[in-house]
Amino acid sequence: MATIETNKPNGPVAAALLAGGIGSAVLGLVTFAVEASEVVKTSMNWYKPVGPLMGKSSLGIIAFFLSWVILTYVWQGKETNFNRIATIAIVLVAVGLIFTFPPVWGILLGGE
């Protein structure tokens, strides 16, 4: 008869959720920084046909996978306060959603 193993530690899952939040927040904040600064915009232009979008999206993706690896290493085999970490993760995702929303750039930077 099949059984279900329910005692796996939640550390790796908490690491994944928080990494998702970190990746989203980095994407949003870098996107906003590009709108705010010509210097940052130029520095994100890693591949001319795509323009600064490559730098912005790549930094978000790198932050996602790198933080996932680090957090998994830290929380491997451990039990975490999952609800607290998941709440932080969804707040970070919200940061990403807010700062990738064009009207927010206008409101915070005083443009159109």
Binding site: L17, G20, G60, I61, T100
Partner: peptide, 17 residues
């Protein structure tokens, strides 16, 4: 072009969990 990148990250987290 920006918000789209949140989708694969979140979907990957879901698949992993």
């Amino acid at each position: 072009e920006h918000v789209a990148f949140i989708s694969p990250m979140a979907a990957t987290v879901v698949a992993f969990v």
